[in-house]
Simulated scan of single mutants.
Amino acid sequence: MMRIAAAAILLSGAAPLTAQDHQSHGAHQSHGAAQPSTTDEENTPDHGSMDHGAMDHSAMDHGAMGPSAMDHGQMDHEPAADQKPVETHGDMQHGHPDGAVMDQSGDHSGMNHGQMNHDAAPTPSATPPARALDGPRHAADAIWGDQAMASSRTQLARENGGMTTGVLMVERLEARIASGEDAMLWDIQGWYGGDLNRVFIKSEGEGELGGSVEDAEIQLLYSRAIGPFFDLQTGARLDLEPETRSHLVLGVQGLAPYMWHVDAALFLSDRGDLTARIEGEYDHKIIQQLILQPRAELELAAQDIAERDLGAGLTKFETGLRLRYEITREFAPYIGVGYETSLGETADIARAQGRGTHGLAFLAGIRAWF
């Protein structure tokens, strides 16, 4: 049986290609023969009488025959007797209205694009057309009238940034437990206004725990938004302790990159003293209610201020780390640790007076807002 099968395969492979019917395969087998010249009229075949069903395609070189040499508009493909009627190329014209033929080698010079206009797409314009601005500024006015829509626009502006709100924030209200000296501290601020214009009130101070107040100040500021994240603030500051002194204030407050809350200000006193203060803090959420807050504060003076025991340059640096738990959003107790040190000439003055220049303290307090 194996010998019979092998003989059958050899016999089928030896069958001449010219004997195969055109209907038995979907592609031509030979593309290597020379193409008849289309310039010699005597050798040009009559496609009107050509029988494609019985035509031997083995002698045709389809690789060398370009579509430009074939007039599909005039070619008449008449089916053989044993074939079903097929659609003639004269009726198809391959989508070209005037029967023009496109050379597949890339030459489109003979191609009639007809309705295929690739330049018909509109070009984007930098400015809108004039007719886009012909109508009223508020289209609804044409239907409901100016008076009816004016109140609606006022309400819309109010609900999208025009509302006035206020808050009172107790940033720090804490006890500071240090070796040899316990202290208390407060840092409070509140504001009232809208998104652009606000009135701020701030107060800071410290003193002995259960004793007298050593430093106390209060500020009243006008705040104006100068960007999406920062406000420019100006106003007045009044020192109540250790002696009464007033200052002009110019500063900025807002949200710096990496979500640091920054408050920086310059103070010009009624005695001509120029000082500055920069504060920064960051809220890192461990969980939704448990928040770790690093904080830093730096103070400077432009000249010596003898009555405050301050020297020119950097005067004080304070840093701390507080861990708070928000029982509610409005109320959060915290614990932490803080470090404070005098700098530069201020430290020299403190050492000359026999006072310490730095210290570490344990903190316990609350943060709340109303």
Rank of each mutant, 00 (worst) to 15 (best):
D40T: 05
D40L: 08
E41V: 09
E41F: 13
E42D: 06
E42T: 10
N43D: 05
N43K: 11
N43S: 14
T44Y: 13
T44A: 12
T44W: 09
P45C: 06
P45N: 03
D46P: 04
H47G: 08
H47E: 09
S49E: 06
S49C: 03
M50S: 05
D51R: 01
D51V: 02
H52G: 00
G53R: 09
A54I: 04
A54E: 14
A54V: 04
A54D: 15
M55K: 11
D56M: 03
S58T: 15
A59Y: 15
A59V: 09
D61E: 05
H62F: 15
H62A: 05
H62L: 10
H62M: 14
H62R: 04
A64N: 11
G66L: 09
G66H: 00
P67Y: 10
P67C: 12
P67F: 09
S68F: 07
A69L: 09
A69W: 01
A69M: 08
H72Q: 03
G73L: 04
G73Q: 02
M75Y: 03
M75H: 02
M75L: 15
M75Q: 12
M75E: 06
D76V: 15
D76E: 10
D76K: 14
H77C: 13
H77G: 02
E78G: 14
E78A: 10
P79K: 04
A80G: 15
A80N: 10
A80D: 12
A81P: 03
A81C: 05
D82R: 07
D82W: 09
Q83S: 12
Q83I: 00
K84C: 07
P85A: 03
P85W: 02
P85Y: 05
E87R: 14
E87A: 02
E87D: 05
E87P: 02
T88S: 11
T88N: 09
H89P: 01
H89E: 03
D91N: 12
D91K: 06
M92R: 14
Q93N: 11
Q93T: 05
H96V: 11
P97Q: 01
P97L: 03
P97A: 03
D98R: 00
D98W: 04
